[in-house]
Nucleic acid binder design. Structure first.
Lengths: 192, 192
DNA sequence: AAGAATTGCGCAATAC
DNA sequence: GGTATTGCGCAATTCT
């Protein structure tokens, strides 16, 4: 009784943390996608031939080898940052077609070191930290929840064993008694 | 009976996934740190004064405002990458002290576009993808485990209620019988 | 001593 | 418009 309230409090803490972020799941425990929605969706190694690689084998979990997304176009000789945005956009191609006037020096000066850009980045960085912190907390809560549930489960099973044994004992006693008085409608009810 | 085996199989899948990564936990279920070891360890906002910031408030979970780690030294005017390594190392300071000879142009040419560097990066990128994939799977497994445990818990509690009711019924019947035969040592035993 | 694994971070794309 | 989430690469660190 006491332990139940303690457990449920943490469970609720978890519950309030989990459906929270976004998604607004429809409260439908359909037991198939309600937990795979956060992660693990469409994460796969991109086919992308290029099989002539080093094949530093012995490391293929689940059969899919962890090939890089675009191990070819690794230009970025100088300037700019390392990000080549795996999914090639028109912007990226334009930088190849016109190597003279690049984004950082043109593009209406909306790029890079404009204070506006920096501010956007800063805000996003804060948001990212916050989001990841939240995710970490959620993970910890889920783990705690699982452990508490397991603990509670063990207790319940132990208690169930006790109750079952008691019940058997009483049934046995009653069956002994009933050898002389057959008005045991309750016994059949209890065996369900 | 059947459902038990089904549940335990997934539990074991989770268990085999969890203590796996590293750490090599000493098999000691001391109920305090066995789940906080993976994440959320020493993750805190770095004190780091600098309180004169914009204070775009209204976003402070758990009381700690998500200030940037080092929002001051944002040089990186050109060359090199964005990384200023939050925890200042001697290397980083040397770059400030000697702005003439930098790492990318000096440093024995072990930097950046050497094929050796690229290979290291590529390997690490693969490892990172793999590790994160693993983490995602682990999270999903933990969630599944929690849900299954909760389900099992509800069943157990329902069953417990049934058993308790049966027990009460039988006890009542026995007490009625015992009004004429006081050999009920078992009743006291069952009430424990 | 060297390579894999983990982790915090910033960036950019995208979702909301 | 803005924040929130997410995949990714980088670098530092830790583990093996």
């Amino acid at each position: 009784m006491m332990s139940d309230s303690r457990v449920s409090s943490v469970i609720q803490e978890w519950a309030s943390s989990y459906p929270g972020p976004a998604h607004s799941q429809p409260l439908n425990p359909s037991m198939s996608n309600q937990l795979a929605q956060m992660d693990m969706l469409q994460y796969q190694a991109p086919g992308l031939g290029r099989g002539g690689g080093e094949d530093r084998g012995s490391e293929t979990m689940m059969g899919m080898s962890y090939l890089p997304y675009s191990s070819s176009c690794l230009s970025s000789t100088s300037s700019s940052n390392h990000h080549q945005s795996h999914a090639a956009t028109q912007q990226d191609f334009s930088s190849f077609l016109l190597p003279a006037l690049r984004a950082p020096v043109n593009k209406r000066s909306i790029s890079k070191d404009s204070p506006e850009y920096r501010q956007r980045r800063e805000r996003n960085n804060i948001a990212v930290r916050k989001s990841r912190d939240k995710a970490r907390r959620r993970i910890v809560l889920t783990q705690q929840r699982a452990m508490q549930l397991q603990e509670e489960n063990q207790k319940l099973q132990m208690r169930m064993g006790q109750l079952t044994q008691e019940l058997d004992t009483l049934k046995h006693i009653l069956s002994q008694r009933h050898l002389q008085g057959p008005e045991d409608a309750a016994a059949g009810d209890a065996s369900i």
